[in-house]
Design a protein around this nucleic acid. Structure first.
Length: 263
DNA sequence: CAGATCACCTGCTTGC
DNA sequence: TGCAAGCAGGTGATCT
């Protein structure tokens, strides 16, 4: 579900509500979402006050008065404010005022305490909305990888996922199997620009709601209606009319226009 | 290091 | 209608 624009939208919907709230109690009920000692995690959170909510890559990072909590939504995770618990609720944060629940049908998400947050954060690459052109080009040139899997690599860029990788490559006119180190400076610059524009536009539209994504207020995103290739296999390219193709690259469905995107 | 394969888990869609 | 296969926004381990 959630890539950078969706996570950013969740953070923005949480930010007006969470800071200053005290966690009265917490409860976790999935060994996958909260691996290890989830009872201890609940005890650690008890009595803590949330100071800030930020995003780093696809991670939601909450600074507490003591310690840090990170939430990764995996594929189907949701953080919802003042919503009732359901079949797939695996986390409940009871505040002095209100409640926040964590839902995640597939349980690919992770809720973790600060020590693990630091370990994870050290493995993340630069923020795609912050990295400069020169550094981006140098990083592309240094790798001899197909460009699509490279964009999905969180050590290369933190936050780009399957939808926005495909959409960015389409916008830049680059084939997903192009070799990163062999991209011309002009095409690398175009990719840098495309990633920034698409992520920013997607954030403006609250992200993409493909099947069930919503922010913490339960509001869906609208960027999916502006997708040019993702999920459009067989449909005409919005630019040239040729049918959009779907191939598998690195085990991920990959959508592109064979006429507009060149190696 | 690049890449393939598998694994984690549930639910929805598709095709026979 | 039923059932199996295939698919899904992500990541990490393991092996070549």
């Amino acid at each position: 579900m959630p890539e950078l624009p969706e996570v950013e939208s969740v953070v923005r919907s949480l930010a007006p509500h969470l800071p200053g709230r005290r966690i009265v109690s917490a409860k976790f009920t999935s060994k996958h979402v909260t691996p290890g000692n989830r009872k201890q995690l609940a005890i650690r959170l008890e009595g803590r006050t949330i100071q800030s909510v930020k995003r780093r890559g696809k991670f939601i990072v909450m600074a507490l008065d003591r310690g840090t909590l990170s939430v990764h939504l995996g594929m189907t995770g949701r953080l919802l404010l003042d919503a009732p618990a359901g079949t797939h609720t695996y986390g409940v944060f009871a505040f002095d005022r209100g409640v926040m629940i964590y839902d995640d049908p597939r349980q690919f998400g992770k809720i973790e305490w600060s020590a693990d947050v630091a370990r994870r954060a050290s493995k993340l690459g630069p923020e795609p909305l912050e990295i400069g052109l020169d550094e981006f080009c140098a990083n592309l040139r240094r790798r001899k990888s197909r460009v699509k899997p490279l964009l999905l690599n969180q050590r290369f860029l933190a936050g780009v996922g399957n939808i926005y990788a495909d959409e960015s490559l389409f916008a830049a006119g680059i084939h997903p199997l192009a070799i990163s180190s062999r991209l011309s400076a002009a095409r690398a610059a175009k990719l840098h620009q495309a990633i920034r524009e698409i992520l920013a536009l997607a954030i403006e539209h609250g992200g993409s709601s493909i099947s069930d994504y919503v922010d913490a207020d339960g509001k869906q995103g609208w960027f999916q209606i502006m997708h040019h290739v993702y999920g459009r296999e067989g449909e005409p390219c919005t630019r040239c009319g040729a049918p959009v193709r779907r191939i598998v690259v690195g085990q991920r469905g990959t959508h592109f226009c064979p006429k507009c995107q060149k190696r």
